[in-house]
Structures are given as C-alpha cells and as structure tokens.
C-alpha cells in the first residue's frame, strides 16, 4: 500500500501547476515596491474648479497591458495641496504609496477627462475626474486589485481613454 502511495505521489509530482499568463506575471511584477514608484513628479495643472473628491491620473505606458493608475484622493491624502492657479502637488512619498497596478478600471465609469499632463520624463498622463466612488472602491483600488468586474462596454471605455 505504501509503495502504491509513493508511486502515486511521484506521478502527481510530474504534473506541474499551470504557469500564470503573461498578463498576470506583469501584474505581479509590478507589486515590487520599486516598480510602483511614480515615473515623474506628482505635480499637475488642473482647472480651478476641480472637485478634489477623487482624482485619477492615468499613466500611458508603452505596454498596452501596463495600466497604472495614481489615485490622488484629497480626502484621504491630506498632503495634497491645490494652489489658486490650479497647481496640484503632493509629497513624493504620497505618490509612491498611492500608485498601484490595476487590471481594470471599471470604477472610472462616469469619469470625465479633464486634462493631460506631461511628466518631466516625457510620460504622458491622462487626468480624469471620477465621481460617485465610495470608500470601498477606494480601498480596493489602493490595494491594487480590481474594484469590480469588467463588462465589454467598460473595456471599450478603458481603451479609448488610453489613447492620448
């Protein structure tokens, strides 16, 4: 009996776990703290009337699969400041904490594009304003996981917003 079990165990070991998809590997790769730092400084120009309840900066990366979103939520990030001219700044460490990889961005449904931002290193950002997101969505997003499931329509929205 024991030899049967040993033999069975050996045969099971020859079966290997399925490898993760390239997309998942990219997501995991970006969980490394150094990988999720801001590519540029956290400073952008915004309209004066900007509602700071919740703001996302979208970083357009060379890889289509690379979707990074900076969440800058004034309510949760008291370090953010907005000058009368609409210049927004945040401490660098805040940016490092807040940039998280996300797979889908269905939570920006209802968002509107309010500007673009060219980082000092040349990376283009798209700035969108989001409304109606609750704290739970924020908690999900800052941990880098999907806030909700994605529908095809939302995917289209994501793609169109990527093209800046």
């Amino acid at each position: 009996m024991n030899s049967n079990i040993d033999s069975f165990e050996e045969k099971l070991r020859k079966i290997k776990a399925a490898p993760p998809s390239a997309k998942l590997m990219a997501r995991l790769q970006r969980t490394l703290p150094q990988e999720i730092k801001a590519p540029g400084q956290t400073r952008l120009e915004t309209p004066e009337h900007w509602n700071w309840r919740m703001i996302f900066l979208r970083i357009a990366t060379p890889l289509a699969a690379s979707v990074l979103i900076i969440l800058a939520v004034k309510h949760y990030l008291p370090g953010l400041t907005v000058s009368p001219g609409g210049i927004v700044s945040a401490p660098a460490q805040v940016a490092e904490l807040q940039i998280r990889p996300v797979e889908t961005v269905d939570c920006i449904l209802g968002a509107r594009k309010i500007g673009t931002y060219q980082a000092p290193n040349g990376n283009p950002y798209q700035v969108v304003q989001c409304v109606g997101l609750n704290r739970q969505v924020w908690e999900n997003m800052k941990d880098g996981r999907r806030a909700a499931r994605t529908t095809p329509r939302q995917q289209v929205l994501l793609i169109s917003m990527n093209a800046i």
Binding site: T31, R100, E103, G144
Partner: peptide
C-alpha cells in the same frame, strides 16, 4: 489572479 496579486501587495 486577484487574490494572488492582492496577497503580493500585502506581503510587500
């Protein structure tokens, strides 16, 4: 996949 990514973020 979400679970794994979430766990990695937490572990880091």
């Amino acid at each position: 996949e979400d679970l794994l990514q979430e766990a990695m973020v937490e572990v880091w």
